[in-house]
């Protein structure tokens, strides 16, 4: 109690009736005030984990403490401390934005005079003042999402859970939504636990990230620490097909960690690409080879995911061909599914 941990789970698992192991073993700790990203492909167990943390699904094994309270023993107390934004809009379309927020306040036991100033404040923050008295069924997708956020925040929760909050929004709407989240985090003291399968979203926003796959956490850390695991930047050089082998030449350039060749394309790994591109080009010139193209790849969580699971991370989940390939290389077979 009173610790600086907003969420703590120990070996949390959920097997649904029928034997589907949605979550196998999730142990994590989220500090107060953090934005914690829970990342994984569709069907990895993200929503089930959130449902357990928000008392909507009962764990089969393990323990989860939210705001210092056990989710199984004190579900009502946990619910009082948390706010939720679901994948789909859950506001009542026949009610206005303001009425939806008043309803939420009432459900948390707030009376009119407690609700009013809070609702005005949130409407302003979310840029919904003009739309506040219109029925929600006429709102745009982005407005609906912002309203969900406002509804979830009415009772000033300690922890905000966002389950795939930007699904179905266009890139502009997504970017906008994350701006509101950053703002919310700056102005309100709230811990945010969010799931997403968009890698770029967690990269800049989240203090820490956990990657879940097939119900298990396979990595946790900051975005940077996860990227370090895959060995920094990659400089890709394309040379004429007739060129002699350059592997040794490139490997001798100071700062280069590893060189691999795929036909006329060389991949040069190095901690940082800055300052290394021109030495590489000069080294090739010295061999009489003219470089046809240079690209620099920053480490991405996509590559982290590939490195950890042997499978490419795809926004729509795995496609079958990739999964079969991964399996052939032992990626999936190792799991013994």
């Amino acid at each position: 109690m009173g610790s600086a941990e907003a969420i703590r789970t120990e070996n949390l698992a959920k097997t649904f009736p029928g034997g589907v192991e949605a979550v196998r073993d999730v142990s994590l700790a989220v500090q107060e005030g953090e934005i914690y990203g829970f990342l994984g492909p569709n069907g990895a167990g993200k929503t089930t984990t959130v449902s357990m943390l928000t008392t909507l699904v009962r764990p089969t094994r393990g323990r989860a403490m939210v705001a210092g309270l056990d989710v199984v023993q004190s579900p009502r107390e946990v619910r009082q401390e948390i706010g939720l934004v679901f994948q789909d809009s859950t506001a009542d379309g026949e009610l206005t934005g303001r009425e939806n927020m008043e309803l939420a306040g009432g459900l948390f036991g707030m009376n009119r005079s407690e609700c009013r100033p809070r609702i005005e404040e949130l409407l302003t923050r979310m840029d919904l003042v003009d739309a506040a008295d219109r029925r929600v069924k006429g709102y745009s997708g982005g407005m609906k999402r912002r309203l969900e956020l406002a509804v979830a925040m009415v009772h000033t929760p300690k922890i905000l859970f966002l389950d795939e909050p930007t699904i179905g929004l266009d890139p502009q709407g997504r970017a906008g939504f994350w701006r509101y989240i950053s703002q919310l985090r700056r102005e309100q003291k709230v811990t945010i636990f969010m799931t997403t399968h968009y890698l770029d979203e967690v990269e800049n926003l989240c203090d820490r990230i956990a990657i879940i796959d097939h119900g298990d956490i396979i990595a946790t850390g900051t975005s940077d620490s996860l990227k370090e695991r895959v060995g920094g930047d990659v400089v890709e050089l394309r040379v004429p097909a007739t060129s002699p082998d350059l592997t040794t030449t490139l490997g001798a350039v100071p700062g280069v960690r590893e060189v691999s060749r795929d036909g006329a394309v060389y991949q040069v790994r190095c901690p940082r690409a800055e300052g290394i591109v021109s030495p590489l080009v000069r080294a090739c010139d010295a061999q009489g080879v003219t470089i046809e193209g240079v690209t620099v790849q920053r480490p991405s969580l996509d590559r982290v995911f590939l490195a950890l699971t042997g499978k490419a991370y795809r926004e729509e989940g795995y496609d079958d061909g990739r999964a079969a390939q991964a399996s052939a290389f032992g990626g999936r077979a190792r799991r013994g599914r």
């Binding site: 909507l56 619910r79 009542d92 948390f108 036991g109």
Partner: peptide, 13 residues
């Protein structure tokens, strides 16, 4: 179907 019931049971009601 609209998830409104889900939202309601996620409150202390």
């Amino acid at each position: 179907q609209l998830g409104i019931l889900q939202r309601t049971i996620a409150t202390p009601v």
